[in-house]
Design a binder for these strands. Sequence first.
DNA 1: TGACATTAGTTTCATCTGTAACTAGCTGAG
DNA 2: CTCAGCTAGTTACAGATGAAACTAATGTCA
Lengths: 169, 169
Amino acid sequence: MKLMSTQPEPPPPGDETTLRLEQFLPYRLNVVGHFASRALGRIYSERFGIGIPEWRVIAQLGEFGKLTSRDIGELSQMHKTKVSRAVSELEKRGLTSRSENREDRREAFISLTPRGSRTYAEIVPLALAFQARWTEGLPADELRVFERVLSILTERGRHLAGGYHESEG
Amino acid sequence: MKLMSTQPEPPPPGDETTLRLEQFLPYRLNVVGHFASRALGRIYSERFGIGIPEWRVIAQLGEFGKLTSRDIGELSQMHKTKVSRAVSELEKRGLTSRSENREDRREAFISLTPRGSRTYAEIVPLALAFQARWTEGLPADELRVFERVLSILTERGRHLAGGYHESEG
DNA sequence: TGACATTAGTTTCATCTGTAACTAGCTGAG
DNA sequence: CTCAGCTAGTTACAGATGAAACTAATGTCA
């Protein structure tokens, strides 16, 4: 990249009037998250014909077995409309099924069909391998610190963002 | 949240057949990135009437002074169509202006108008304060490790995702 | 010089997303 | 019992997004 830039001096570090976007945390977190989604999304769509919201639903059902849409949304940080559409799509493809809750007929339990379970069993190793490859060679203690800080930032972010569900990955 | 779950046992840690989404790195990075975008996006839109792509353009112009759309895209990891639209929007609002490059009439230099510079000067302290508040109280050395690992993951992610620009924050 | 490939940037189009409005069903105060 | 308010989930709508097609200009190679 040949930069056309000229005018401003390289801003002195730590001042209050300039910001280096490439060091700005919200930006960086978004970029890395987007890379993750793109890379994984490609795997999911190429090999299984599903998207990331559908993957999240499958992942939660594989982990917890039987959930309402509401629970899925809360667990996977997705908006209810996104969950609704993902579940419809999965049902259309025969990967999940719905069973009414007789005690509360507003909600329904979603669970994986045998075919859905097979898909889950196929995806999980790929996802884990992807993660392993991504973090390969990083010192375990640094990774632990990273994850700890990430948890804190996520929790604070949840509040700074004003609650509710939503995202992608 | 009252979980409806039952069937599967809590999976033994470190096995290869189950995945805990809430510990899955791509998912986590995406969630935190989304929180960041939402929180910042609210500030930008409420106080300045712009979105995140527009913010990124302003940030780069504030930092580098005069750039082509191509450079902006590369620097801020945005798709060229997103840059194109963001620049149009900013121009419409009088925050940036365009000057043709006589040596290569395909491209144009974008720069902040005086009004754009004022907006930049207003946003930067808010953005920095946001970041400061977000990372407040975290030990400096842990934050350094975090940023170091983040850089590595970002760089690897860029390749895993297969190059190109794109994202949000 | 002249054609073919390449690049900057825009536009078109199909898709995805969230907000808001809506339906259906539950709950609790009176 | 009942009605107002709440919750689960869907749908309609409007805005954002990226891939692909397109325009205009430059580069290249014979």
